[in-house]
Simulated assay, not measured.
Amino acid sequence: MTANTTYPDNITALYARLSQEDALDGESNSIANQKKILQKAAKDKGYTDTIFFVDDGITGTTMKRPGFQKMIAAIEAGYISAVFVKDLSRLGRNYIEVGKLTEEFFPLHDVRLVAVSDGVDSDEGEDDFTPFKNIMNEYYAKDISKKRRIVNKMKGNAGIPLSPPPYGYIKNLEDPRFWVIDPEAAEVVRCIYRLALEGNGPLQIATALGTMGGAEPLGLSNQQGRL
Results as ranks from 00 to 15, higher is better:
A3S: 15
N4T: 10
T5D: 01
P8I: 08
A13E: 09
L14W: 00
Q20I: 11
E21P: 05
E21K: 10
S28L: 09
A32P: 00
Q34D: 01
I37W: 00
L38N: 01
K43T: 08
K43M: 11
K43A: 13
D44R: 01
T48A: 12
D49S: 15
D49T: 07
D49F: 08
I51C: 10
F53K: 01
F53E: 01
V54H: 02
D56V: 01
G60T: 09
G67M: 03
F68A: 01
Q69W: 03
M71T: 02
A73C: 05
A74I: 03
A74G: 05
G78W: 06
I80S: 07
A82W: 06
S89I: 03
L91H: 00
N94G: 04
F106C: 05
F106R: 06
L108D: 10
H109R: 08
L113G: 02
V116M: 04
V116R: 02
S117G: 10
G119I: 09
D121F: 05
D123V: 03
E124A: 13
E126M: 12
E126K: 15
T130G: 04
P131L: 05
K133L: 15
N134K: 11
N137R: 13
Y140W: 14
Y140V: 10
S145P: 03
S145I: 05
K146P: 05
R148S: 14
I150L: 14
M154R: 14
G156V: 02
N157H: 09
P164D: 11
P166T: 01
P166G: 03
D175M: 04
F178N: 09
V180H: 07
D182G: 05
P183G: 04
A185W: 07
R190E: 13
R194L: 15
L195I: 09
E198I: 07
G201P: 04
P202S: 11
T207N: 15
M212H: 09
A215I: 08
E216G: 08
P217A: 09
Q224W: 08
R226F: 08
R226C: 04
